[in-house]
Design a protein around this nucleic acid. Structure first.
Lengths: 149, 149
DNA sequence: CCTTGTTAGTTACAAAAACAACTATTAGCA
DNA sequence: TGCTAATAGTTGTTTTTGTAACTAACAAGG
């Protein structure tokens, strides 16, 4: 039987990645949830606007690979809390620019700082040379497209 | 300002891991969902039973880090489809052993095979020496516990 | 025994996600 | 212009998840 020997499903990459993602992120999730009252999608929208500046909802969706309905609700919630402003574009009145308010920017900066520290702690016991390999691989896996059906 | 320069949130490890997990696993998810009609938790329960043999619900939960309510529902669904059998333990009649039926085992084997091929394809364009580093890091991140509050 | 506490698993209800259908606006083109 | 198609974003409905409360079984000490 020409089967590769002892492939263990606990080493199945998508599973391994999921586990690593959940476990490594759980502690940080409590920060933006409990301390800042943000949902995960809201935190992601916030950090994309904070990191890359004003942009449209669709653009966030493309960058972060989030479905537009999730974005829509996250944006609505962030706006209600006065963390961002929306302004209709003139050249195309379907779309609107999203910009963080001063409060939103402040929250972003605090969370970004926390994220950075958290990240450092996560990487603490991984040798420097392995870190580059890790993030490199992850970036490649992020765009992995296999059999395009 | 003593801030570490240019930390980009798109390199924030939990985010990166999540993205990589979702993107790299999406194609495989369609297999167990569309072709086998399984939910993600169901697939995980199936593969733990297939990989490690008969065990109790709690044990699956501990190994796979899945909450017991999710396990409970997945098990109920798998049983209804005759993919597993449950038998009460005699020495402790609260718990029950879960065992794959013949059909369940067959499905597991097919999916395990598919997973293995999928995994190989995913790793195809990652140099062999980097693969070891990647999986090693992921295993460590899986058990990452920071500030134990 | 009988109380108290713990554990295995289920169920009920609330929160969040997935999916589909919708409005409003623009673009292409006959 | 006026028709069709496409796009930005929203809303409504159904699944799935998360949280908490629950039942049943055990365990340990009085």
């Amino acid at each position: 039987m020409p089967q590769m020997p002892d492939f263990c499903l606990t080493d199945f990459l998508p599973y391994l990645l999921n586990r690593a993602a959940e476990e490594s992120g759980a502690e940080f999730a409590r920060i933006y949830k409990d301390q800042y009252g943000l949902l995960r999608t809201e935190w992601r929208v916030l950090f994309h606007l904070g990191e890359f500046g004003t942009m449209t909802a669709t653009e966030i969706g493309q960058r972060a690979r989030i479905h537009k309905t999730k974005i829509s609700r996250a944006v609505a919630s962030l706006q209600k809390r006065r963390l961002l402003m929306r302004t209709r574009m003139e050249r195309d009145r379907r779309q609107e620019c999203l910009t963080l308010t001063r409060t939103g920017t402040k929250m972003f900066e605090e969370l970004a700082q926390a994220a950075q520290h958290y990240n450092t702690a996560l990487l603490a016991d991984i040798p420097a040379n392995e870190r580059a390999v890790l993030t490199g691989c992850l970036h490649r896996l992020q765009t992995a497209r296999l059999a395009p059906k």
